[in-house]
């Protein structure tokens, strides 16, 4: 399979810089630590956040971190689309007989980001152990499926925001507003946000399904905002919809690129 060879070549070329790799892995773990430290520090000055206690927010943060880290590992490289379009390197991807998106992603599946995924999983185990819930088979399934669905949602957001570059090359950090901003958003209960942001990020983009609703379902808590409990199990469906939407957006972007030849 061609993609596998692309991937292997990438891993090999990165392994040549072993010292850099070690630094990168450490760095990516530290970024994960940062998420947790933020939560710990916030709960030093407040007993509750948006009506939720530390154990609950910790679980949300762990779910969000896991999902984000996995998405970043798999498709984080689409961020570089801007440079590819600007430098004309994207043309080189289009003339190959493989999907442009898959190639761009395989160009740099950053081995260094594995560290953050591993750290996220450890945190998720700790958070689940610390949370006031009994571990049943159903909950275990939910705990496993949710980060994967969340990763798909984040992945879709990564791809969708990168697509902006097809129309607007100088878009700078604007994509980060949705990706890293999304990570920030999903770490905390959506009850703390204003109505506008909640509608935009939680419902329209689907960030509420990454951690908030699943956490409610896991802990058997009713939503203070009145949403039905089954939404906690809806993450996979939302993820599929998000992925399809992102794929369509990508195709539109490529078509636009081909017709303008920018």
């Amino acid at each position: 399979m061609a993609y596998r060879h692309l991937l292997a070549a990438q891993v090999r070329s990165q392994a040549q810089y072993r010292a850099s790799l070690a630094v990168d892995v450490t760095g990516s773990v530290l970024f994960g630590v940062l998420d947790i430290v933020s939560v710990v520090v916030l709960f030093r000055v407040t007993p509750t956040l948006g009506g939720f206690g530390f154990a609950e927010v910790f679980l949300m943060t762990a779910l969000a971190s896991c999902a984000f880290a996995t998405a970043d590992l798999m498709v984080g490289n689409v961020e570089r689309l801007r440079q590819y379009v600007r430098s004309g390197l994207f043309d080189a991807l289009l003339v190959r007989p493989l999907s442009s998106l898959a190639q761009l992603v395989a160009m740099d599946v950053a081995t260094r980001r594995v560290g953050r995924v591993a750290f996220g999983v450890v945190m998720l185990v700790l958070a689940a152990a610390n949370a006031p819930m009994e571990l049943t088979l159903a909950r275990l399934a939910l705990l496993t499926v949710t980060p994967i669905a969340g990763a798909l949602i984040f992945g879709a957001v990564f791809v969708a925001t990168a697509t902006v570059a097809f129309w607007w090359i100088e878009s700078g950090e604007i994509a980060n507003g949705l990706t890293y901003g999304g990570l920030n958003f999903t770490q905390y209960p959506i009850t703390i946000y204003g109505a506008l942001f909640r509608r935009l990020f939680a419902y329209a983009v689907g960030f509420a399904f990454v951690a908030y609703y699943p956490t409610l379902a896991l802990l058997d808590r009713p939503d203070p905002l009145g949403a039905p409990t089954f939404l906690g199990y809806a993450a996979p469906a939302v993820a599929v919809m998000a992925a399809v939407a992102a794929g369509l957006l990508w195709q539109t972007g490529v078509r636009h690129y081909r017709s303008t030849g920018s």
Binding site: N184, I192, G194
Partner: peptide, 10 residues
């Protein structure tokens, strides 16, 4: 907006 929402919640 995101950061201030967290601060407000605190």
């Amino acid at each position: 907006f995101l950061r201030f929402a967290v601060m407000l919640a605190v």
